[in-house]
């Protein structure tokens, strides 16, 4: 369980999050949705312990998030952060040396599933295959919390499809909670069990996706618009 309690974050004069209170349950695949600059990445980094709150507390299973809770969280960032002169195989070994919970066998299984050549140098991979390698590196860690910041962004439909299938094949919702931010929410809507709407650093709502359909008769995109209008 991840809890945000009165959490605010300022970068100098800019407010990234303001007075966020939310409890995220375990064992769910959750979408974090909102427009650019709404605070999605800050929210994710805070769970990963990469950014600390200016005010308030973020806890995982009631333990305050620090660099030490990072061993519970696998975080896929928007950016590419590996050594491009490594081959895929070397990258896997490097990650295995950095994280005690890294499951090398699983990493190769995921790469095979997504048909990535492990002998290639990372810098020679297509953008789609780099996206796949990032997914493999994230999902190969045996951790209770997986965070993915824009894992589908800028990838073509074939690659996105293979990433979604890889995700469904290799996560274990009995033991793991997965949070994904995306601009293409319509595309992964059937994948999500819950959704968090965020705007201008404020969490507007946390809702069950099936409830939104049943009660409001809406897709997430329309529900999000409604949340935004109610706030404006």
């Amino acid at each position: 369980m991840i809890t945000f309690e009165n959490v605010s974050k300022r970068y100098l004069t800019k407010r990234a999050l303001s007075d966020v209170n939310v409890t995220i349950p375990e064992g769910k695949l959750i979408g974090l949705v909102g427009s650019n600059g709404s605070g999605k990445s800050t929210f994710m980094k805070m769970i990963a312990g990469l950014v600390g709150p200016t005010e308030g507390n973020v806890t995982i299973d009631e333990v305050p998030v620090t660099r030490r809770t990072a061993d519970k969280v696998a975080y896929l960032s928007e950016l590419d952060e590996y050594y491009s002169f490594y081959s895929v195989k070397e990258t896997i070994s490097f990650f295995a040396s950095q994280f005690a919970d890294f499951n090398t066998e699983k990493a190769f299984e995921i790469l095979d599933f997504m048909e990535v050549d492990r002998e290639q140098k990372v810098k020679h991979l297509s953008k789609g295959n780099r996206g796949r390698v990032k997914i493999a590196l994230t999902l190969a860690r045996d951790v209770p919390i997986i965070l993915m910041d824009e894992p589908l962004s800028g990838l073509d439909p074939m690659v996105r499809d293979s990433i979604v299938k890889g995700l469904l094949s290799f996560i274990d919702l009995e033991k793991q909670t997965v949070i994904i931010t995306t601009h293409e929410v319509a595309e992964i809507e059937p994948l999500l069990e819950m959704v968090i709407a965020i705007r201008n650093g404020k969490v507007l709502a946390l809702e069950d996706v099936e409830t939104i359909r049943e009660r409001d008769g809406m897709r997430i995109v329309d529900w999000l618009k409604k949340q935004y209008q109610a706030e404006a």
Binding site: P157, V164, E189, P190, E210, R213, E214, G217, M218
Partner: peptide, 12 residues
């Protein structure tokens, strides 16, 4: 990807 679902009815 996946299949189309009607927005106004639960997927299950």
């Amino acid at each position: 990807m996946g299949e189309e679902f009607n927005p106004s009815k639960p997927i299950y």
